[in-house]
Design a binder for these strands. Structure first.
Lengths: 212, 212
DNA sequence: ACCTGAACACCGTTCAAGT
DNA sequence: ACCTGAACACCGTTCAAGT
């Protein structure tokens, strides 16, 4: 075939297919050769568009972050900072739980990924505008990222096994009902997230009042 | 060589060497063959002690969790639940930040790993004993896990690049000083963690008071 | 500029063979 | 029981060759 007059690939097309593959089969199963196969192309072709596998995964991570709603950071409606943080955290978590296998990739931070930088910029800007001192505004953005990514990194409830005999009562006296957790995975994780987010925002409100 | 009369390997020795390798070079660079090399043994030898690479990494993850202090969950001194959670969260975070490359492995949850189960058991048991209803106690343990693992998954400050020209002011109007973050990485991350942990515990205290 | 196949060094894992 | 080397299918990436 050699070079077609209409390029077969683009960074966009590659990133989209890569996200599909990661979503479907996880990071473990993701390989450049399988990705090329899914795109109907030979392995080395990808290297005309990306320098390395890691750069493709960077694009995958940023595509997920691009799904996060940032409209609550205004400036048009500009809701109170607490409302904005709440809505952002929920949208952020929704984007990550829609693509759970991508979460470990977020360990690298925004680096030079545009969507991640837009998000960091919007949060920090809105917090400063709302009256948080810059150093505190940085922390607020960071600690909410901690909570949201942590909640999406792995299901708490799904991290237990459903086998009733899995947890020896002598060794783990309080886990007698832990094998029931996986059956209510979504409910437990949602409940814990809601409780944590509420607590976090309540606590931040106390700190904000102490500022003035 | 074939079989030596004194076994060359043990699960323990393998797991310890694996943790050392992951700490030194990251998950990317970790391979069964390199691990075998570090142990002075041929690749397939590992399969006499572990079923697969993933099982070795399970042991690595559990070794890190085993470093977390659980003594604050009593029963001998039995401090107030807020103090216990605070001290636990700090010890938990310290264990993870000492082994940052291991954090993505924690996505899987406790499953059947003994140290992870001991930790879940201790937290849940102590919260119930302190007066939290069981459903809430589960959530408290989960949401603190979210916050701690998220804070250890990746440095917030270190996720930016130190290059002053990296962040176009037109695209990211509030990131003018973001390139300074990596230089204060530890301070920023510690500050955000402390602020978040304080807010979380303040918020949980409000919820606990509302219970009675 | 953008694709190909061939090639290189490296993977995880299986298996028969040795003691 | 516990190690070995050989082997298999599969990796990420480079590179010369094609248009």
């Amino acid at each position: 075939m050699a070079r077609p007059r209409q390029p077969l690939l683009s960074r966009e097309r590659i990133a989209t297919a890569a996200l599909g593959l990661v979503d479907a089969e996880g990071l473990q199963a993701f390989s450049t050769r399988r990705l090329a196969g899914a795109l109907g192309v030979s392995g080395p072709s990808l290297y005309n568009h990306f320098q390395a596998k890691g750069e493709i995964l960077d694009a995958v991570a940023d595509a997920v972050i691009a799904e996060v709603d940032l409209s609550m950071f205004g400036p048009d409606p500009a809701p109170p900072w607490r409302t904005a943080l709440h809505d952002w955290a929920r949208s952020y978590r929704a984007a990550l739980t829609a693509h759970p296998h991508v979460v470990p990739l977020l360990a690298q931070g925004p680096r030079r990924r545009p969507a991640a930088l837009r998000m960091a910029d919007a949060v920090f800007g809105a917090m400063v505008r709302a009256g948080w001192p810059p150093a505190q505004a940085t922390r607020v953005g960071a600690l909410l990222r901690y909570f949201v990514t942590g909640s999406a990194l792995g299901s708490f409830a799904g991290g237990f096994v459903a086998d009733p005999g899995a947890y020896d009562p002598a060794a783990y006296p309080h886990l007698g009902r832990a094998h029931l957790l996986p059956a209510h995975q979504q409910q437990v994780d949602e409940g814990a997230f809601a409780m944590g987010l509420g607590a976090l925002l309540d606590g931040l409100e106390l700190q904000f009042q102490r500022l003035s």
